[in-house]
Amino acid sequence: MKRRSMGVLLPAACLFLAAAAVTAIASGSAGIPLLRVITTILEGQATPEFGILMDIRLPRIILGFAVGGALSIAGVILQGMFRNPLVEPYTLGISGGAALGAALCIILKLHYVLPVTALPLSGFLGSCLVILPLYFLNMRRTVLRMQGILLTGVMMSFISSSLVFLIFAISKTQELHSIVFWIMGSLEEPSWTLILVLTAIVVACLFASFFFAPVLNALSLGEEEAVHLGIDTERAKKQLFLMASLLTGISVSLTGIIGFVGLIVPHFVRMLTGYDHRRLLVVSFLVGSGFLIFCDTIARTVISPIELPVGVITGILGGSVFIYVLARRQGLARPGGSL
């Protein structure tokens, strides 16, 4: 695949995101045609159709935008700082912690006490439960050991999924169903406040991550080389790790585990933009948002009115597209892949 200039990529990525959003708002079991969607929104009257668009479809689109973008840039950051293309936001066990938190919340029936916030809150606490030991166990004096983080993260992931299975084994069928559905991921979220808070944090992180683009570029040569280029790698690594954890933690706690976005989107975008994180971060964010909105549209329309877990769609669609692209690239046999 040829590298494209930013003048082509940026409009193309925006267009993709816009197309995904328009498709998402115009499709669904209520069967409102696109023209009707536009007039309904423009008129802005409290018709049932207006309600469906603004209270059911729009929140999902915004949540998809925020979570898709968050997972993608978390993936870019982690792949960049670990110099490992197979690392993704969930490799570090953050999702496992969140799943454990949510599962505990469901069997302890905490969501009856705090109906809106209990699940996201316990998901977030669960991910903190993983992030903090991960961070402090791998601090040696002032040095953050990257390989240590990776290994501890994978182990934490195993431990928390074992604990989730333990909870499965002792829970009743109905609770089991809620836990499984939470874990498989969904963009359904009734609280506008939570959606807007998440979106604000994610957009802020996108801007913040842009400040780290030169640092990530230098880190792609290795830590020692980055030091030679005048980067305070220890400070940068800590900040980047915490930012990626925050992005993953808040996304997972609101939507459950939506896999593959954070792994595949950065990979795919890197083929087009090259190594430079200044382009990679922005384009990945846009493509990731669009991809997740698109997958969610498929998830809720393909056998409507039954809604499929969106994580299933991202996995199947993302995985197949990626294998296809990879096979085509190898078929072209250009020397030197993008990673």
């Binding site: 040569l221 020692e224 005048g230 190594y275 993008s338």
Partner: peptide, 16 residues
């Protein structure tokens, strides 16, 4: 880094 430059041998893993 503005005063000392180091020429090492670690090839970038990422295509550039």
């Amino acid at each position: 880094a503005r005063k000392i430059a180091v020429v090492s041998q670690s090839m970038p893993l990422i295509e550039m």
